[in-house]
């Protein structure tokens, strides 16, 4: 009875909260364009297929870490027979992907993926070493 304004106010608040992504999307003019990643020009193939890397790179990196630190497995043989040096900084970033800010953070920040503990031990290569120039020259994916 006398509580109707209160009930309607609560209902309005609930609906506003539930539809928050809509209002926020309008306010921030969110688009469905995801983060842009630059593919290295000189390499056509990652250590594993792209679809696998997009979904499960963390599995591979954890397997690399455990293998190298605990079993001294310093080399990784890809499915196509190429042998890679097991190193996040040395192989992944320096040879192809540039740096944490230019590659990892793009998607991790976009999707709000909590920062993994990779960077407690590893360092990101400094800006613009030799390998990254080729990345910068590469086209958009």
């Amino acid at each position: 009875m006398g509580d109707r304004p209160l009930i309607y106010a609560g209902l309005f608040l609930f609906v506003a909260l539930v539809t928050l992504p809509v209002w926020q999307g309008i306010a921030a003019q969110s688009s469905t364009v995801g983060p842009e990643l630059k593919a290295p020009a000189h390499k056509k193939q990652c250590v594993a297929p792209r679809a696998y890397m997009r979904e499960a790179h963390m599995e591979l990196l954890m397997a690399w870490r455990d293998g190298k630190v605990r079993k001294h497995e310093r080399h990784y043989t890809a499915a196509d027979g190429t042998v890679y040096n097991v190193s996040l900084t040395g192989t992944c970033l320096t040879q192809c992907h540039g740096s944490k800010e230019k590659f990892c953070d793009r998607c991790h920040e976009y999707a709000g993926v909590s920062a993994p503990n990779c960077w407690g031990c590893h360092t990101s290569p400094p800006a613009e070493p030799g390998g990254v120039a080729a990345v910068a020259a590469g086209g958009m994916r």
């Binding site: 969110s30 995801g34 979904e55 499960a56």
Partner: peptide, 27 residues
């Protein structure tokens, strides 16, 4: 089974902003 989180977010943002897209890799 894993899922491409970036693709999921593109779909979710598309739904929330009424410009739905269906990205590949949703599994």
């Amino acid at each position: 089974t894993r899922v491409d989180v970036v693709a999921v977010k593109q779909l979710a943002i598309g739904l929330a902003t009424f410009q739905p897209v269906i990205p590949a890799g949703l599994g």
